[in-house]
Simulated scan of single mutants.
Amino acid sequence: MNSAEQFLQDRLQERTTKGLFRQLINTTLPFDFCSNDYLGFAKSPALKQLIEAQVKNIANYKNGSGGSRLLSGNHPYTEETEQFIANFHQAAAGLIFNSGYDANVGLLSAVPQRGDTIITDELIHASLIDGARLSHAERYKFRHNDLNDLAQKLKNAKGLIYVVVESVYSMDGDTAPLKEIVDLCKQHQAHLIVDEAHATGIFGHKGRGLTVQLGLEKDVFARIVTFGKAVGTHGAIILGSTALRNYLINFSRSFIYTTAAPIHHIVAINCAYQLLTTNDYPTQIAHKIILYNELLRNINLPIIKSSSAIQTILVKGNANARNAAAGLQEKGFDVKAILSPTVAEGKERLRICLHTYNSDEEIRNLAEQLKTLQ
């Protein structure tokens, strides 16, 4: 075995010994409380029919795009879809990326420059962390949702300042105090970037996100909306000014140097947004969230308060969290354990996702099973 292969084996063995070895699994449990498909769009027959009908209306579409957007991969329909989505979220313009990871890395690696400052909430997504690392800006973290700590970091910032938060945090499910953060950014001439991945479809009129719900869309420099959660498809869009869109087309490496998504992929995104406008999905998912929280009030478990579709029960220790999840899975409830180092040691948890297709009875039955964890 050569030295590189030995390195791989040693690292994998180390992870296995610590009980942290990851592997791909196929889950077919009857009650989904795991996926990010909050509105059921990923499995929606109506969306599938809409996509199939719309694809037929695009003449001579290709199986693949054939190149990057700057070469052969652009299409008028893609640009129309970008503007349609931007209008939906009350933004001037938008640029589609192949994934949320690509969008976050592409934005933060391209916009902040040497001499600038990026200040991030300590719990932001790994893709935002990686994007910030790729920039030449100074980087600081502030304690999660801690406005005083953010204010202190802003006082020490130099150059152009970018504050990066999620509107809904993917592991805790709690929301950022966006109004207060906007006020702080205005005081320090900082530019706010909000990842709306887990707020889209859940908050705001027709699911426009928490930024729009709070009327802050004009106060935010950039928003990232991903399509792989409530929108039920794949990809992401960066929303902002026309200047930001043009800048990213010119300087964002994860946009420039990658093959564009095929047109039927863009059709799926467009159709999902059409479906969003047809119903009051935020009210539907809110009913499930309220019901779950009412049931959990009578159960003595360490939870993180959340008004989003992501609900968390802390179960300290990787082995304990894994065993708790396995017990629920044996009863048919697809609930996953989130282990350290994905979350901080001592903050291991069960991450429970609620969906419009979870019946009230399923949620009540889940709550009954959670009582066994007390």
Rank of each mutant, 00 (worst) to 15 (best):
S3T: 10
F7Q: 13
R11H: 12
T16S: 13
T17F: 14
L20N: 06
C34M: 12
N36E: 14
D37R: 06
D37M: 13
F41I: 10
A42D: 09
Q49Y: 11
A53K: 15
Q54Y: 13
Q54G: 09
A59D: 11
N63G: 13
G64T: 12
S65E: 05
S65R: 06
G67L: 11
G73D: 05
N74V: 08
E79M: 09
E80F: 10
A86H: 04
A86V: 10
A86D: 07
N87D: 15
F88W: 08
Q90R: 12
I96Q: 02
I96D: 01
G100I: 01
Y101S: 04
D102I: 03
G106Y: 00
L107P: 00
L107D: 00
S109I: 01
R114C: 15
T117K: 00
T120P: 03
T120S: 09
T120V: 07
T120L: 06
D121T: 10
E122I: 13
G131I: 00
G131R: 00
F142V: 12
A157G: 05
I161S: 01
Y169Q: 07
P177W: 02
C185D: 04
C185A: 14
Q189E: 13
Q189V: 09
L192E: 02
L192C: 14
L192Y: 03
D195I: 11
D195M: 11
A197R: 01
H205R: 08
T211S: 07
Q213A: 14
G215I: 12
R223I: 14
I224K: 02
I224N: 01
T226C: 14
K229R: 13
A230P: 08
T233V: 10
G235M: 06
G235A: 08
G235D: 04
I238P: 00
T242H: 09
A243W: 09
L244Q: 04
L244P: 01
L244Y: 02
A261T: 06
I266C: 06
I266E: 01
I266D: 01
V267C: 04
V267R: 00
A268S: 15
C271N: 03
T277S: 08
T283G: 14
T283C: 13
Q284K: 14
H287Q: 13
H287P: 09
K288Q: 15
L295D: 03
L295H: 04
L301G: 06
P302H: 12
S307L: 08
I310R: 00
Q311I: 08
T312D: 03
I313Y: 05
I313C: 06
L314R: 06
L314V: 09
V315N: 01
G317Y: 03
G332H: 15
K336S: 12
A337V: 05
P341E: 09
P341C: 06
R351T: 04
C353H: 05
H355R: 11
N365Y: 07
E368F: 09
L370D: 00
K371Q: 06
